[in-house]
Design a protein around this nucleic acid. Sequence first.
DNA 1: TTGAAAGCGGTACCAC
DNA 2: GTGGTACCGCTTTCAA
Lengths: 356, 356
Amino acid sequence: MKKVPGIQDVAAEAGVSISTVSRVLNHSGNVADNLRRRVYKAVESTGYSANPIASNLKSTKRNQIAVVIPTLRGTYYTDIIKGVSEYFYEKSIMSVVLESGGNMEKESSIIKDLEKQWIDGIILIPGQCGQEESYRKYMESLSHLRKRDTPIPVVLVEADGRNEDLDLVRVDHEAAFYAMAEHLLELGRRKLAYLGDAEDASLVGLALKGIRRAMEEYDCSLSEQLVCMGNSTVLDGYQSMARLLYDGQRPDGVICTNDQVAAGALNACKEQGLLSPKDVAVTGYGGMALSIVTDPPITTMVAPRQQMGTAAAQLLYERIEGNREEPRRIILAAHPAIRCSTMKSAFRRLETMFDD
Amino acid sequence: MKKVPGIQDVAAEAGVSISTVSRVLNHSGNVADNLRRRVYKAVESTGYSANPIASNLKSTKRNQIAVVIPTLRGTYYTDIIKGVSEYFYEKSIMSVVLESGGNMEKESSIIKDLEKQWIDGIILIPGQCGQEESYRKYMESLSHLRKRDTPIPVVLVEADGRNEDLDLVRVDHEAAFYAMAEHLLELGRRKLAYLGDAEDASLVGLALKGIRRAMEEYDCSLSEQLVCMGNSTVLDGYQSMARLLYDGQRPDGVICTNDQVAAGALNACKEQGLLSPKDVAVTGYGGMALSIVTDPPITTMVAPRQQMGTAAAQLLYERIEGNREEPRRIILAAHPAIRCSTMKSAFRRLETMFDD
DNA sequence: TTGAAAGCGGTACCAC
DNA sequence: GTGGTACCGCTTTCAA
């Protein structure tokens, strides 16, 4: 195995000093035209390409950031990644994607690994962080990053706001669920149900808050019996809804924690001969591709996922460049997509925005 | 800004030589117990963590591979990434994900960038490589990687087999489409249509080959009028199917290039009052999450996406370690998921395998 | 068993 | 303008 050509080979080939080669290649300092040409020629003939590792040895910069996400399944998080990696690709910074499984221990261990890797920054999308106990340990590993002599900047995405001093980008879930509830209430529905994700306590809290606030304004309230906790798959939605109906509960509006659950709920309704939206109006959440292909298509709140990624990337970049000290929070709004699962008259055009 | 503790600080703190610290930390060579203890203590007190950049300076290894994919949208490619990154995470090798937009020029430029980055290996999922002309330039950039003094190994995923000497992992699409056609033919359907993706000539070719082979065996053939080319979104499927019906063509079976197109086609049928599967049986392809939430759920071929990723990662790792010289191809089979869009009696259980 | 010293491939500062 | 040279942080001989 032949050795890779190094800068010293180029220098030898061109008959100039290493310093000169460096100057030419980094456009630093002035070099006489003839030398410059000779250097370029030597680069050509040797097939030289700078070793990025050695280049960063001094600066101890890696030109690399990491995105830690709960899961690569589905499109919610990968859309966020899209925003992040596009932003950093422009800046010649590579993005590494790590999957935590939504598991706090794994997240912590990944973060420790990244620390050893001397990564330039981390965008962290935490999984469920319900249990106070392990949350403490978790926060420790994060704050450790900031207490280092050379801190690794961290930007949180879609996390609750408990960690006050970290940058944060998230969707205003409370407002979004408020909007969904208001939409149903405006349509005259009063007996609303909520199908939540037991594993995402933080989202459930915000959703309930939003829904309750809307219902109060319409002088009604959310019955505890109509609040169901499952996981967040199609199957869970189906089962939760089926159980509600089996128990003799029959809401006239169902707000689901995401589009998958809504799709499942829709199925359960159909099975019982209930029509949507006539008998039961169903709303999803997230604006995933599948929300448009169900029958009827599901009314949902579209989360600006890629935009979240871009915003987070921007915040992180400011930190990496040392351009900002005080923490910032960016709260983005989800926007409604009204479809036939709540309004029969809804615009029926197949939307092209989702090309999952 | 304080300096990061380096190995020399640890050495000073422990009152030993740098060499000794290195030996202790890398478990290389024997060190007296008392020295070893002092080193560990010094590591603790200084908060030392090895600089991964400097560690690899000699070996010029980066412990980093790249996955180049057409798009981060949807779940098809991200599922492949999941397989890849899990495999390499175990090996302490980071995976970087780059999005090419399915654009050959961008792909080439990304690959050039990666070359400068001295990445240890590349898993490449090419976009459409229809046009012979630009394909040539493209192959050049690939073969350049192999002709370097220190070649960067490349594994292709879901590419056609034109590049004979590269490792390759893909699904046997011809067999899969053959199976879909056979399924419809077995159900007595004879007037089959095919909705393809104009931008993926390679897939179209294989699909048509498979479908035609199956039809021949049933003594019938595919009418050219029932072959439609669009793109691959829900909307395209809707439009293609609508056009067919508008033209007075009415197939009794429709084979779609993917699940999105099938979902769209299903919609168009419904709009014309056609029942599925009674009037028209519709099949999708890929086994995406949305195939299960449509009404009726769509019969599809499930592509082993994560498995492809793992297989590709394995091949790449062998190359990186220099354990193999001769190129290998791994062809995986897709497996059918029969649903109500083709057989009314199909098992109706909501499958949990898709939790998009 | 230990330490000194020579790189690894560049960058950057300092003379000339 | 140009070249010499001292690092960057770690690994790896090579002597002692």
